[in-house]
Computed example of a mutant assay.
Amino acid sequence: MAGEVTVDALPYIDQGYDDAGVRESALAMVEEECRRYRPTKNYLDHLPPLNANAFETELMASEFERIQNRQPMETLSMKRYELPPPPSGKLSEVSAWQESIENSMAQLEHQWVRAMNLELMLDYGIESWKAYLEVIAALQAKTLTQLQESKKQIQDINWQRKQAQTHAGEKLKSLEANWVLLVSKNYEIEQKCAELEDQLQKALMKIESLKARKSTTLTNGDT
């Protein structure tokens, strides 16, 4: 298939990874490939465009705009917690005093609500906190269980890889031993063939020599 990569390394079987210079050589090859690699297209083209404002609220947008414009943050207004009297020019106006009284009543109501919340916290805060801790403990237990399952899956995968590589390594060693044996036999056969060819050449030369001598003898006899 196009783009398919065949991995021919067996980390559980191969040797020599710790030899001097092996790591440096591998890193040099990676750096060389990174220098030569030039992407021909954007590998994120199949994904929709990123919407960076998907979770942005109006408050966040205004705050980001303030930060971008380098404007200072508005200070927290404490005016609602103050109990100012009417201005000096309106001390004789009933409406000004009525506004101050309403403000003081709102402040008093706010303090009463805070006191009531504190009493409720004293009565129910402990139980609420216990319930919250129980939820956290349950989430922690569930997360730990998922973590143990993930570790077990990783161990199973590594064990399967080791078993497969060990089996492949034994097969490779057997094939390598057979290859060495066959190469050795071929070498021996080539040596024997070379010896036989040499003996044949010597025999042919000896026959030719005998024929020449016999021819010479017959020629001399006829003379």
Score class of each variant (00 low, 15 high):
residue 130 K to L: 12
residue 64 F to I: 10
residue 79 K to G: 06
residue 21 G to V: 15
residue 20 A to C: 04
residue 5 V to P: 02
residue 210 L to D: 08
residue 63 E to D: 15
residue 130 K to Q: 13
residue 119 E to C: 09
residue 6 T to A: 12
residue 185 K to S: 06
residue 75 T to M: 06
residue 69 N to A: 15
residue 115 A to H: 09
residue 69 N to I: 00
residue 108 L to G: 02
residue 106 A to H: 04
residue 42 N to I: 10
residue 110 H to N: 07
residue 20 A to K: 08
residue 29 M to G: 05
residue 89 G to M: 02
residue 216 T to M: 05
residue 64 F to Y: 13
residue 77 S to P: 00
residue 75 T to S: 11
residue 175 L to W: 09
residue 152 K to A: 12
residue 151 K to Q: 13
residue 104 S to F: 09
residue 183 V to N: 05
residue 190 E to M: 09
residue 65 E to C: 11
residue 201 Q to R: 08
residue 209 S to Q: 11
residue 202 K to Q: 02
residue 170 E to K: 13
residue 160 Q to D: 04
residue 221 G to Q: 05
residue 80 R to G: 00
residue 5 V to K: 15
residue 164 A to H: 12
residue 107 Q to V: 03
residue 9 A to N: 01
residue 20 A to Q: 10
residue 7 V to L: 06
residue 134 E to W: 04
residue 41 K to C: 12
residue 83 L to H: 01
residue 17 Y to S: 02
residue 217 T to F: 09
residue 117 N to D: 14
residue 5 V to Q: 15
residue 6 T to K: 13
residue 89 G to H: 12
residue 88 S to F: 01
residue 5 V to A: 14
residue 171 K to I: 14
residue 201 Q to I: 01
residue 73 M to R: 07
residue 133 L to P: 00
residue 68 Q to L: 14
residue 97 W to M: 10
residue 134 E to P: 00
residue 144 L to E: 15
residue 10 L to W: 03
residue 168 A to F: 02
residue 81 Y to F: 14
residue 39 P to W: 12
residue 137 A to S: 11
residue 138 A to H: 05
residue 96 A to K: 04
residue 47 L to H: 07
residue 184 S to G: 11
residue 118 L to Y: 09
residue 134 E to R: 13
residue 76 L to D: 08
